[in-house]
C-alpha cells in the first residue's frame, strides 16, 4: 500500500533539509578560506548526506511504489522538495555560510533531541544516531558565530549582514504546524511544541556571547517548504545536483 501521508511528508522534510544543506556545503570544495574549514564543511556535509539517506530509505519504504533513496534525491522536481527555505539559500561569504549552519544546527539539535524519544522506533533510531553527529556540528558553528561576531569590526559587520540576509527564512524553524501537531497526537512523533522556544534560547545565548543583536521575530510570507513553494535558488541547485541521474538514468560506477 502506498503511504504518501503526513508522516512521509515529515520524513521528507528532514531528509530534504539535510541533503540540500549538504549540497550547499559541497559548493565550498576547493574554495574554503582554510584547509581545516574545508575538511570541516565536507565532514559535516557527509554526515548530512548519510542522515538524508536514512530518512529517505524510511520514506521510500512507506511510499512503497518502487521508489528508493536515490530516486527521492535525484528524480523529484522542485515543488516536491520539502526542505527548509533556509538551507537552499546561497552560501554568500563565510559569515553567511556559518550563520546558516548555526541556525540549521540549532534547529536540528533540538528537533532530534525530541525525536529520539519517538514511539516510532525507526524515527527514534535515526534521530539518536544523527544527534551524536549534530552535537558536534552545533558546537563548531556556535564557536564560529562567537568568534566572528566578537571578532574584528569587519567580521562583526559581516555577521550582522549575514543575519539580515537569512533571518526572514527562520520563520519556518519556529512555526507551529498542524501536520506535526496531528502527528504527535496520533503518537508517531513526540510533541514539538517546545522546539521554537528551544531554538530561540540557543540563538539568544550564542548571539549574546557573540555581541550580535537578535532581530524581532520573523513573520511568515508566501513561500513555504511545506507546500513546495521555494525561493528561486532551489531550482538552480537541483539542476546541478540532479544533472547526472537525469541525463544518464541509473548511471553507476
Amino acid at each position: 500500500m502506498t503511504k504518501y501521508d503526513e508522516l512521509t511528508e515529515f520524513l521528507l522534510r528532514l531528509g530534504d533539509s539535510s541533503l540540500i544543506h549538504a549540497q550547499r556545503l559541497c559548493e565550498w570544495t576547493g574554495r574554503a578560506p582554510a584547509l581545516e574549514e574545508e575538511m570541516g564543511m565536507m565532514n559535516v556535509g557527509l554526515d548530512l548526506v548519510g542522515q538524508a539517506r536514512n530518512w529517505y530509505e524510511y520514506a521510500a519504504e512507506r511510499i512503497n511504489d518502487g521508489t528508493d533513496a536515490d530516486a527521492l534525491a535525484f528524480r523529484r522536481d522542485e515543488r516536491a522538495f520539502r526542505n527548509l527555505l533556509l538551507v537552499e539559500q546561497p552560501n554568500g561569504d563565510f559569515a553567511v555560510t556559518m550563520t546558516k549552519q548555526f541556525f540549521f544546527d540549532a534547529w536540528q539539535f533540538h528537533l532530534l533531541t525530541l525525536l529520539k524519544d519517538a514511539k516510532d522506533e525507526r524515527i527514534a533510531a535515526i534521530a539518536a544516531k544523527s544527534l551524536k553527529e549534530v552535537t558536534y556540528h552545533l558546537r563548531r558553528s556556535s564557536q564560529w558565530v562567537e568568534r566572528l561576531g566578537d571578532g574584528t569590526e569587519e567580521s562583526h559587520q559581516r555577521m550582522e549582514k549575514a543575519i539580515d540576509v537569512l533571518w526572514r527564512f527562520t520563520f519556518e524553524l519556529v512555526e507551529k504546524s498542524d501536520t506535526e501537531l496531528a502527528l504527535s497526537e496520533s503518537g508517531s512523533i513526540p510533541a514539538l511544541t517546545e522546539l521554537p522556544e528551544q531554538w530561540r534560547a540557543t540563538v539568544n545565548e550564542v548571539f549574546a556571547k557573540a555581541t550580535l543583536t537578535v532581530p524581532d521575530a520573523p513573520s511568515t510570507f508566501y513561500l513555504s517548504a511545506r507546500t513546495g513553494m521555494h525561493s528561486e535558488h532551489l531550482g538552480i541547485l537541483l539542476a546541478e545536483m540532479q544533472f547526472l541521474q537525469r541525463a544518464y538514468p541509473d548511471a553507476s560506477w
Partner: peptide, 13 residues
C-alpha cells in the same frame, strides 16, 4: 585542537 574535523568524520586534528 587544530580543527574539529580531521581527515575523516571520526577524527579531529
Amino acid at each position: 585542537q587544530l580543527s574539529e574535523f580531521g581527515s575523516t568524520a571520526c577524527k579531529s586534528l
